[in-house]
Each structure stands twice: as C-alpha cells, then as structure tokens.
C-alpha cells in the first residue's frame, strides 16, 4: 500500500513539475550579459528559475507548474536583453 502511494505521489510530481527549457544564446560573452538575461527572465512570473552556463552558451529555464513560455516569447525576451537565440530545447 505504501509503495502504491509513493508511486502515485512520484507520478503526480512529474505531471505537475514545471517544464524545463535549455536555450543556446548568441552574444552572451560575459557574466554582465548573463546578469541582464537573468533579470529579464526573472521579471516574468511564469519563470521559476534561471541558470546560466557561459562555457556552454546556455540559459536553463524552469517554469512554474503547468506554465510555460513559447519559443517566440523566449526569443522576444532575449532580443529585449540584446541577444540572439541559436537553439531552444525542451526537456
């Protein structure tokens, strides 16, 4: 019985966990750039977390439960911050 409850709980977590997106960004060459991009995404209440990896040119986004930003919106936010998008991968 306990195992069944655990399986159901884990299952519901995966259903309601926020979507994760990996964005490969063009022009992000320093931590100053990363700060601007992070701030721009954090202004959006849908975005739960923003993590930047400069070496890989990646911005990892996690959204709140059952919410997401479409590719056009992500590109628009990055354009507002002054950067370009190479690739968007949804996980």
């Amino acid at each position: 019985m306990n195992i069944l409850i655990l399986i159901l709980a884990l299952g519901s977590m995966s259903v309601y966990a926020g979507e994760k997106v990996e964005v490969t960004v063009k022009g992000m060459v320093c931590s100053f750039c990363s700060q601007g991009i992070t701030k721009k995404f954090k202004e959006n209440p849908i975005v739960k977390s923003v993590n930047v990896n400069l070496d890989m040119h990646l911005v990892n986004l996690e959204f709140n439960e059952n919410q997401k930003l479409d590719d056009q919106k992500i590109e628009a936010l990055l354009k507002d911050a002054g950067y370009g998008v190479e690739k968007i991968t949804r996980k």
Partner: peptide, 14 residues
Amino acid sequence: TSSIYAHPVAYAGS
C-alpha cells in the same frame, strides 16, 4: 541589482 555589460545602450528598462 542586475546588469549587463557596460555599453551605452543596455537592455530595455535598465
């Protein structure tokens, strides 16, 4: 506060 690089034009609203 946050930032971007020290250019004369930064990101919108900064």
